[in-house]
Design a protein around this nucleic acid. Structure first.
Length: 285
DNA sequence: CATTTCACCTGGTGGC
DNA sequence: TGCCACCAGGTGAAAT
């Protein structure tokens, strides 16, 4: 499910519901897969910490956690400060991060349950286990930073610079998280449609004007999707379990064979960078 | 170094 | 109903 608008929606929802709440107990599944920091380490280091804030960076949800333990105020100025931490959640293809009441039925493929002081639970559910849960202790690790640029705020020159000299398809470049962080398959296809650019065009051969159209289309599509709570193609839901509405606005994604909403030409599906890619052969050149 | 391919997982859908 | 091929929001390691 999760590209920038979906991750943003979830991060906002979780933030609203857990800010100030403290983790009192944790449970993790015995699967190895979704745990980047081992489940055992996370289970040992999470209890006692409070959620200070939850935000999005690229496709990652970053939970800012306070220091653990109860030795809040030390009069000994020489003693080390208790370390704050970050709990980083990546949703992969099918991950969900939910804030529930304790009595809510536990969904299949639930891999993490954090019980909070208020009684509520933060739950991570992920059938395919492509997601990742990582704990960063900020006394020994640097704060999380995305590799690529932030699509919502990138400026024209920097955006154009990402693609200059590159021979790969523009769509493959948009999906590369070390260039831009947060763009996935849906929003790559949709923004290329709105910019009138074919997905297979070599990135480095786009004109400055085309690149600027693409930047603006990308930002508009992402903002619009955020305002509608993201795209629910099959099972995406926000932190409350509510579906998004941007799938109703898709012009090309998963519309193979259906008439283009602008010119009625049937939408085509091809493979680019191994991903299903949808475009209008008449509107996109 | 840049780019492409593939493995990692489960589940839903549609054809036969 | 069953079986099978194919498809799905992502990414990082290996191959080219």
């Amino acid at each position: 499910m999760p590209e920038l608008p979906e991750v943003e929606t979830i991060a906002r929802g979780v933030h609203q519901r857990v800010r100030g709440d403290q983790i009192v107990q944790v449970w993790f599944s015995s699967h190895k897969q979704p745990f980047k920091t081992t489940a055992r380490i996370q289970a040992g280091k999470l209890p006692g910490r409070a959620f200070l804030a939850v935000h999005r960076t690229g496709k990652h949800i970053v939970c800012e956690l306070g220091p653990s333990g109860h030795s809040a105020i030390s009069t000994d100025t020489a003693s080390p400060q208790p370390a704050s931490a970050q709990w980083i959640v990546h949703l992969g293809m099918t991950g969900r991060l939910l804030v529930t009441t304790p009595d809510a039925p536990v969904a299949p493929h639930t891999h993490a349950r954090l019980t909070l002081q208020s009684g509520r639970e933060v739950r991570f559910v992920d059938p395919r286990r492509f997601g990742r849960l990582e704990l960063r202790l900020l006394d020994r690790a640097t704060p999380f930073a995305a590799a690529g640029a932030e699509p919502l705020t990138i400026q024209p020159d920097e955006f154009a610079g990402l693609f200059s000299g590159r021979k790969l398809a523009i769509k493959a470049a948009l999906l590369n998280q070390s260039l831009l962080s947060g763009v996935g398959n849906i929003y790559a296809d949709e923004s290329l449609f709105h910019a009138g650019i074919r997905p297979r065009r070599p990135a480095g051969r786009l004109t400055k004007a085309q690149l600027e159209r693409l930047r603006l289309a990308l930002q508009q599509v992402l903002q619009h999707a955020i305002s509608l709570g993201g795209s629910s193609v099959s099972d995406y839901v926000d932190a409350e379990g509510v579906r998004g509405f941007f799938q109703l606005e898709h012009c090309v994604y998963l519309r193979t064979g259906l008439p283009c909403l602008r010119c009625n030409t049937p939408i085509r599906r091809i493979l680019v960078a191994g991903r299903g890619t949808h475009y209008c052969p008449k509107c996109q050149l």
